[in-house]
């Protein structure tokens, strides 16, 4: 692949554009996951500044389940590992 002829200016724009969209997608996925699991797992009276054991294990499971939902929806939409 590295030996093939160099991409044209337009192809380059498309490669850069796709890479940018892909990164934006991952960042947004991470942000939504972070916000959603914080709402589901962390008590919002903030009686202390540490996450307790229950919150920590809830967070781990929440991330794992969110990931599964992401993959499941990806399968339903016709690809195997999420949208990309």
């Amino acid at each position: 692949m590295a030996a093939s002829k160099p991409p044209s200016a337009l192809e380059k724009e498309q490669i850069f554009g796709m890479a940018e969209k892909e990164m934006e997608y991952r960042v947004e996925l991470f942000n939504k996951l972070t916000q959603t699991c914080f709402s589901k797992c962390v008590e919002n009276r903030y009686k202390e500044s540490e996450l307790n054991m229950g919150e920590n294990s809830c967070i781990d499971r929440c991330v794992s389940k969110y990931w599964q939902v992401n993959n499941l929806v990806g399968q339903l939409l016709g690809n195997n590992q999420g949208p990309m």
């Binding site: 996951l33 972070t34 699991c37 914080f38 962390v42 996450l51 919150e55 967070i59």
Partner: peptide, 10 residues
Amino acid sequence: KHSMRVGMRF
């Protein structure tokens, strides 16, 4: 702290 933990799992 939550955000860092999520980052590691992710």
